[in-house]
Write a protein that binds this DNA or RNA. Sequence first.
RNA 1: CGGGAGAUGUCAGAGUGGUCGAAUGUGCCGGUCUUGAAAACCGGUGAGGGUAAUACCUCCGGGAGUUCGAAUCUCCCUCUCCCGGCCA
Length: 414
Amino acid sequence: MIDLKYLQKNFDEASRKLLKKGVDTQTLENLKELFSNLKEANAKFEETKAEQNKMSKLFGMYMREKKDISELKVQIATKKEEIVELQSRAREANEALERVALSVPNFPDDSVPEGANEDDNIELKKVLEPREFDFRPKEHWELAEINGWIDFERGVKLAKSRFSVLRGESARLERALINFFLDVNRQKGFEEVCVPFINNASMLQGTGQLPKFADDLFKIDGEELYLIPTAEVPLTNLYNDEILTKKELPILLTGYTPCFRKEAGSAGRDTRGMIRQHQFDKVEMVAITTPEQSEEIFEMMVENASDILTQLGLPHRVVQLCDGDLGFSASKTIDLEVWLPGQDKYREISSISNTCDFQARRAKIRYREGKKNLLVHTLNGSALAVGRTLVAIMENYQNEDGSIDIPKVLKKYM
RNA sequence: CGGGAGAUGUCAGAGUGGUCGAAUGUGCCGGUCUUGAAAACCGGUGAGGGUAAUACCUCCGGGAGUUCGAAUCUCCCUCUCCCGGCCA
């Protein structure tokens, strides 16, 4: 959630920033008004409640002193009606505010370039030269068929479309990649954690998936529980509603989880192959930091994800997202795109974001600084998406006969 | 899934209708002492909102109710622990 006090005090600046994230001025005007409504409603309620509290104390005193309480009783009864009314008005004001506020995206960081969509993203650098092929490189699904690596049909049979089955070598490679990623992250100082793959609604709200993106989530029937769309949810919310000490920051976490996404709205995109599945494996990094630390940690996380790709010998490029392409919670995002020779293009394989205090405010994650409790910064990034790495290895390490070599660093994991 | 107990500040644990945001211990922060540390002693220390700062308001798992007044009484829900069943 954005800082509403900031919105109120710097409305023009705030609305200019959020325009880039597709929020119209109308919504922001509305939000500002709802916020001041709430403050007003609260003030009235509190004032009246204070009067009643005083009278109640008096009541007690009169009783003890055996004074006449009949008049006081009438006064209190009148006040009480007023309070009930004011309280429900304050509550409504709060609900009205939350309904809007929880669906307003984060401000882009000042350093983020302007742009309308992904076409305006900025390539910061390329790492490793794509290999020259003396034959037409195949796409991963052709290679999957030749090698018997991916059983798309049976995945669909077991669940539905956009599910698949890895068999034999590919299943082992998937497992090897997970272990490799976790080991690298651990060496960089991330604590490995193993978390529930199902989280409750409150946690999903904490990281920003709810209430706005409910349609993208698999919900457990009859429960307020959801399959996680990313390990970012459980890892970040590990500290939901907690107050940390400054000493324990930064907290660096890494974990492997499958991720579940409905992919509502992406019908027709990447229907072939396993680029876009309802279930995919990912190893995630999450950092909980002070505001001073977050930029440095952010760069470290980008560096780490890029390093993993380099160790695997996968050519990739580092892309800074423009403000128009930023996700809901992100203040700043850098994507890593891996080269897929079969598709003849770069495809996203990691996305690293600093949400600053946006998630911290929702999830109530704070740290103690002297006598004050301040919001932490939260960061997340993939290191890496496992299925897409598998695809990248298949396409980059293919031979003319369709066979696939295994990157050297993975040999000890196979 | 069946039976029993419980949910209070970092934790442990008092509090059973008013002056209780809450004893005490512990932890944490600061200080005295010490070459330094520990021990001992002294002081401070829940969260959110509000204010220039105070006032003031809300919060004792969550919700509804009784009452002038609820941590305390009633109802519902959730969760935890113990016993039994089932089970990796």
